[in-house]
Design a protein around this nucleic acid. Structure first.
Lengths: 341, 341
DNA sequence: GGTAGGCTTTACATCGTTGCAAAGACGTCC
DNA sequence: GGACGTCTTTGCAACGATGTAAAGCCTACC
């Protein structure tokens, strides 16, 4: 405990005094300024160790205009996909020496807008933003004066970096996988009517493309609306399908939560999976490997998305007016029991 | 965009100049100092609005020694219980005007120790800490000079506030629930041999108490070790049970992830739930309501825990040398299909 | 009319760090 | 021997806010 008085009490001044050098020299040592005589560096380091000096980060932030914190805005952590994404982002950030401040928007449009202009942006050097409700009309709101990386498919073409995946291709692959298992009456759950951007719209496009490529007619009654992609919604969609009496031999949940809800509802009605009804999800959350039956899904390259997002953001924070980039992460189909895999 | 130049460019000085008052008066207005003439307040507010002034939080932090950020250290967000806990903590914090910096310890002892002394503690006004690996021997490490609220059951009796639940009673209730369904050969999965503190030990105690209260003999072969409370561990525990040939008609997973893994393994072996084997978990994560069959569990009052933790922490940050408190959250048994409910 | 005392406002120093520019130290080269 | 260039170190002035203490302004009361 030598020298460690009240918290934050030891300043560079104290270290400088103890080491017999100027404050600036201490600063230089701490910041690895190259031109320091080894003997000096040693003296200073010794004083630092003895006094237990810790740099005051607020002071440094004030001086440098940087906090070392990045923001991550997402709908909510209780959605497993976003929890896992946050996990990956935090790990990636930690590996690069920054920390993460998480803000939940609750998938509320106004809240998503607020996050962009919140006072908290002061605390962060940049923001990784995963909007669910903003649309192309809100592009102006994204014209912010701090580094921004946008995740997802809702808004394009602005002055920011973008990390996304090929939703159309991935959904096509998911659908093709079902077709390969001999399914022809494939329901999609979680569609968003009227949208042309966003994961829902793009994934439905992929679904339609796969059907077309296989000469399977599109039956609109197999496309079920579902606003929030929660488990409960998935169950409701299945209830809807069953109650309308449509025939179907497979379900494509536009995300895993929907698919989990679907599994639940099918089970409750005594409909077995994968026969007569196969199910595939999207996101490949951890749960998918532990449901009964296990859930086939699309793995969106979560780690890759997180790392790319953090890298892009940090590069932007570091400066350099590189052109804004759009990174497309890889996906893979993960077959499990729910599609007979 | 009037007046909003480069980010952070508008300072109190600018506002003061525009309003024709001193910088301190601007500060007073911003901080709701009571003795300000309405006319002055109005002038200043007008200047603030026109210039788009935002307070520089780094400067305020430096001056006040507070950042408005609280830390939350937990094992990992990809464990649903902790994701949901983080969700609740962030909401509670937001309602009280502070933000949350999340650090993952990966359930690694050294990492848990590091978090307590990390440079990042400089950025936070206090810490909510949910250790998994620290034990009573590490109590000294928790003697920190910043506000600390500890969650869980691993360490007691130090100078910090504590939010926990009655693990023994809750586990007893879970076990009693199984007994009430006529079960007598109840396996417990996820036990930690040799521990006397911690959720595992306490929950096993509750389990034993329930057996004793019902005159059911304790069979050690029904207590299965399992270090990390992940889904995979739960599956392994069941595999172990089955392979040793022990007879059992119920499984008590010491948390829901274990129970989910157990459901998975039982399903894979064609053993139905709840008959012949009933399953109950602990934590009542969202998933529990959507598994097939749905999973009975113990709801630990997550919201309450989060709110109490944030309140205690903020009270401690605000000062006042109140005696350290220990809050015990309420729990409820949530019966679902996996126990025949 | 003078003054005590409360309400408003202000100037200044300060929080702990880093950028800047310049000073000092030292060796080299002509 | 002196000028020059490089390596080290330094003092000072910021960064943008707030605490302190004091000054100015009123009102009220004697």
């Amino acid at each position: 405990m030598s020298g460690s008085g009240v918290r934050g009490t030891v300043t560079m001044h104290d270290v400088a005094a103890a080491a017999g050098v100027s404050v600036k020299t201490v600063s230089n040592v701490v910041n690895d300024y190259p031109h320091i005589r080894p003997a000096t560096r040693e003296k200073v380091q010794k004083a630092i160790d003895e006094l237990g000096y810790r740099m005051n980060l607020s002071a440094r932030s004030l001086r440098q205009g940087r906090t070392g914190i990045i923001g991550l805005a997402l709908p909510e952590l209780s959605l497993p996909y976003f929890a896992e994404l946050a996990d990956s982002v935090i790990r990636a950030a930690e590996a690069r020496g920054v920390v993460v401040l998480i803000e939940q928007t609750g998938a509320d449009r106004q809240h998503e807008l607020d996050v962009l202009t919140s006072d908290r942006r002061q605390l962060t050097d940049g923001l990784i933003f995963s909007p669910l409700e903003l649309g192309p009309d809100d592009a102006d709101a994204l014209k912010v004066d701090y580094p921004l990386v946008v995740l997802g498919e809702r808004i394009f073409g602005g002055d920011w970096d973008h990390v996304t995946m090929n939703n159309v291709d991935a959904a096509r692959a998911a659908t093709q996988h079902l077709i390969d298992q001999g399914r022809r009456r494939i329901a999609v759950i979680g569609a968003h009517a009227g949208e042309t951007m966003g994961s829902a719209a793009l994934r439905v496009l992929g679904y339609q493309a796969a059907l077309a490529a296989n000469g399977i007619p599109l039956d609109p009654s197999l496309i079920v609306e579902g606003g929030l992609w929660h488990r409960a919604t998935g169950a409701e969609c299945v209830d809807h399908l069953v109650s309308t009496g449509v025939e179907f031999d497979a379900i494509f949940g536009l995300n895993d939560a929907l698919a989990l809800g679907a599994l639940h509802a099918l089970h409750a009605r005594g409909i077995a999976v994968p026969d007569p009804v196969a199910v595939i999800g999207f996101d490949d959350i951890e749960d998918a490997a532990y449901t009964s039956p296990t859930l086939s899904s699309i793995s969106p390259g979560r780690e890759q998305i997180a790392q790319e997002a953090v890298d892009l953001l940090l590069a932007r924070i570091a400066g350099g007016g590189d052109p804004y980039r759009r990174v497309i992460a890889d996906f893979t189909v993960v077959p499990r029991e729910s599609t007979g895999g």
